[in-house]
Write a protein that binds this DNA or RNA. Structure first.
Lengths: 200, 200
DNA sequence: CCTTGACTTGACCGACCGGTCTATTATCAT
DNA sequence: ATGATAATAGACCGGTCGGTCAAGTCAAGG
């Protein structure tokens, strides 16, 4: 309804989809404006710069992510170890869906931006780091619970959680390079085998 | 000596360093020419386009890679499982050295390019895939040997090798985002815990 | 000597980049 | 109705992009 919110969110949604499917450098403001059916002046009314836009996109995606399938995958009602499988499945179906529609795997927006931008923009790097830290915390909390319930032997849950996040990003990277979501299904379940022991 | 070879290899070396430290889109031909002390015309005498240049860079780096520290890390005289640790160490020292010089972690050129370009250029994607396949084969051969000598229980060595490659790329991605090579040291050793069983 | 062809020089091209600016319109409180 | 402000429109800016091209330089072969 609210026209201002509508325009802004249309820009945000269009930019998000384009940045996700391609890259920061490859997507121009002009193109986003056309896609969102907005004029340049309107764009710069809502966003001061391209870099501020992509920061907003990161926030937007992180929000959806945390409240969307990640929240489901890390559902507290599930046994901890099963949540890991759910997370893999969620990643697979997401990439699979995007791949079926667009014909190519977009991969993980955060991973994509991290590799493209973190040598160029420290502010963005910090933001992406924060997103990764939150994801790691989800893993860690799950592992903590698994250890507490005795489902898993004691370990360094923080380091192992980080390792699992790294593995997930690595799988998505490889799957994107092969343009084949099935790689996620093949490699994903092994995430449960990762372990970093508590240092003595 | 040979001036033609010298000019070409100077372009190649400059481009490689710049592409590795930044990104494909962020580095311009002009900038490469200045860095290599070459004129634009000379550049286009040796390389028909920017995309052909980066393909040559990938080949160049892959060559160095295979004959450099990867060859050492996968030294046949080492016990198979130790080679995995060597590989991690090699990755760490490489990134650490680059980080100390440049102040920021460049990450893996192949991983960087894969995420930036694989939705845009299928030829490059295929080339990067081939590089990854070779790396996976190194892992697989090592695992095969470890299984044969009884150091590791039988498993799906191809899938596990792929998983290890994915994990390595994921670790480097995370380390780059944190701009901290030590992440590789912290997470790296867990590569040995990865396992994908032979499907029944 | 003269020709050939690899190599170099640097001006030049159209397209597009992110971003600015002025003018106009829609909205709404007074 | 009016004045302030939010929002939109779209022409415009300097700069840079990848790439082209005509004009040379120069060493080797005949």
């Amino acid at each position: 309804m609210n026209p201002e919110t509508d325009t802004r969110s249309r820009i945000l949604a269009t930019a998000r989809e384009m940045f996700h499917g391609r890259s920061y450098a490859d997507v121009g403001i002009q193109e986003i404006c056309v896609g969102a059916k907005v004029q340049k002046g309107s764009f710069y009314h809502f966003f001061p710069s391209k870099q501020e836009l992509v920061m907003a996109v990161i926030d937007d995606m992180a929000e959806d992510w945390a409240h969307g399938f990640v929240a489901e995958a890390f559902d507290q009602n599930l046994p901890p170890v099963e949540r890991l499988d759910y997370m893999i499945d969620a990643a697979y179906y997401w990439q699979k869906a995007a791949s079926d529609i667009e014909g190519r795997m977009p991969g993980c927006l955060f991973g994509n931006l991290a590799l493209e931008m973190s040598t160029r923009d420290d502010v963005m790097r910090a933001k992406l780091n924060a997103v990764f830290d939150k994801a790691r915390d989800r893993f860690r909390a799950t592992l903590d619970e698994a250890v507490q319930t005795g489902a898993l032997a004691p370990m360094n849950t923080e380091a192992t959680g980080t390792a699992m996040l790294a593995y997930l990003e690595g799988i998505i990277l490889l799957a994107k390079t092969r343009n084949d979501p099935d790689v996620i299904l093949l490699l994903g379940p092994a995430i449960k085998t990762l372990r970093i022991e508590t240092s003595q």
